[in-house]
Structures are given as C-alpha cells and as structure tokens.
Write a protein that binds this DNA or RNA. Sequence first.
DNA 1: AGAATTCATCTTGACGTCAAGATAATGGAT
DNA 2: ATCCATTATCTTGACGTCAAGATGAATTCT
Lengths: 162, 162
Amino acid sequence: MDEDHVDRILAQWRRERPDIDVEPMGVLGRLARLSTYLGREIEKTFLELGLSSASFDVLAALRRSGRPYRLSPGDLLATTMITSGTMTNRIDQLEKAGLVERLSNPEDRRSVLIALKPEGLDLVERAVTAHVANQHRLTALLEPDEQSALDAILRKYLTAFE
Amino acid sequence: MDEDHVDRILAQWRRERPDIDVEPMGVLGRLARLSTYLGREIEKTFLELGLSSASFDVLAALRRSGRPYRLSPGDLLATTMITSGTMTNRIDQLEKAGLVERLSNPEDRRSVLIALKPEGLDLVERAVTAHVANQHRLTALLEPDEQSALDAILRKYLTAFE
DNA sequence: AGAATTCATCTTGACGTCAAGATAATGGAT
DNA sequence: ATCCATTATCTTGACGTCAAGATGAATTCT
C-alpha cells in the first residue's frame, strides 16, 4: 500500500490537527483528482477533432436523440448539468462553426429547435468513435471486476443527488 | 436496479449506434457527474465563510504545512493541479482579502514566500472544521464498507496518473 | 568575467461557466 | 377581455482557469 499524493496531505493534517477525522477527505480528494485527470484525457481527444467536451456534449445529445436530430435548448439543458446561459453560449459557438442551426418552431414562438447540420452529424460520428475508443483505453486501467465494482458504487452514490 | 440518468443516455446510444460498446461511458459518466455534484456541495460550505474551494486549497496547504505557515508559490503549486498563472491569481486575491502576505526571501531574490496572516489562520481553522464536517456528511451517503471499497479502487486508478 | 541556460514567478488574452435578471410568448384565472 | 403567473430563451457581468510567453534572478559553462 504505497503512499500517494492524497496520503501525504492526510498525514500533514493528522500531524497538525489530530482532532479531525480525515478519512472522508481521502475518498473525496481522490475522487476529485481522478475526475480532473480523466477529464483532461478526454478533452485531449476532442481537441484533435477541433472540439471540446462542452461542444461534444451538445452534438452528442442531438445525435443520440435520433432522427431528425433536433432538440430544443430546454431539452438539451435537461441532458447536461449546466445553466441556460451556458447552453446559449454553447449553441452560439456550434452555430458559428456551422455544425448546428437554430430553426424557429412554428407551433410555439417562444421556443427554438437546434438541428444538427450535415457537417455536425459527420463530425459527431467521427468524434464519438474516437471518444469511445479513448474511454475504453481509460477504463482498461482497471480490471473488469474493479470497473464493475466502481460502477455499482458510483451508481448508488449518484442516487443521493439525482 | 433502477434506471438513472446515465442509463438513459446509454440506452439512447445502444439504439442509435448498436456498434459501439458503451460500458466505459457508463462508469466515466457517473464519475464525472458525481464529482460535479460533490464539488458543488463542497463549494457551498466555503461560500458561507466567504471562501471558495480555490482559496481554501491555498490556505489549507499553508495551514497543514505547519508553523510558521509559509510556503513558496512553487511549493503551493506542487500541492494543487493548477498552472502557475492560476496560482498567482489565487494568491493575489488572498492577499487582497488580507488573509496572506507576500514576503521576499532574502536568500533567493527570485522567490517569494506566501505567509498566512493571523486573519487567514483564524479563517482557515474555522473553514477546515466546517469542511470536514461537510465531507463527513457527504461520505455518510455510502455505507462504511462501500466507502473503503471506493477508496481502494480510486487509489489504484490514480496510480495510473500520478 | 561574460554568455547562455535554467528557474521562479507573473502577465496577458482567451475561454467556459455561473447567477441574476431581461425579454418575449403562452396559458390560465377571473 | 384582461391580467398574471409561467415558460423558454437569451443577455450581462463576473470569476476561475489555462496556454503561452515575459520578466528578473541565479547558475553553469567556457
């Protein structure tokens, strides 16, 4: 059981503040660090295609919704963990890049439909292939039984928030 | 085994792209979502003390380094996962808030020492107490055996990056 | 000693995000 | 018929972060 970065932080706290129980800090610290590393690895793959994780999330939501690859900003919002202002910003950029377009909805003039353009569809198909291959590489750093144990615990943990 | 948000995304991909193996997307997606939720919960606690996670990280590094609570920006950098520009920015703010001060190092004029001021020490002591209590609440959402299983897997996973 | 290299820190410009609120259209209640 | 609350989207201003490079000081090499 080698000492890692988080262990060294915990050891410092135990020396300086022996009154506090740092066990929770260990798990939560590791989760945060790991999530940062994994996020950066994932970002790299998208960067090679001229995308970001942020843009991909929107394109992917449109793609996996099925034909005709159209969703309202509100629908898109529901699939992510961002605010409406951030979604507007993401759509603006994708529109500027020619990957999606805003279509007005004749049935409800308050709302708008975001549609994947052919260029966006083509790009997201290539991106998802590269992304999934990369995710496979990243999860392969754990053994299959560790992956499924991790997944089960994360799933339970998430129910506390969703 | 109820269906969660990530399951719904995976089901969409399986329908639209039956050729791809979405298993890795499940674990990694859950890890990212959970990390975001936990990060927001943690941020809330610091907000009540007029701090952010970012500021706390710096104050905490100084506090747990022990007396006289002084580290160079380089030392601080090594304990975090941010760039030097971001560290300068964090120190600027803490200095502006009167929580730390920059001391010139007479032994090496290239470098600087960041010192906790009494106000900073007082605040970080209160912050770490509140933070640890909050972390305890957050980890208590899992059973003790789940917490330790999670910790063990995360520790192993992290070795791939550190 | 002088020049080139390395090191420690800071600056700049850009980006993604958020909170709060603005705008505009709809639907319901009286 | 009008008013009001709700819904959908966008705008604004601020913040934290990063990548790239600038600055100033120390070290190494000749």
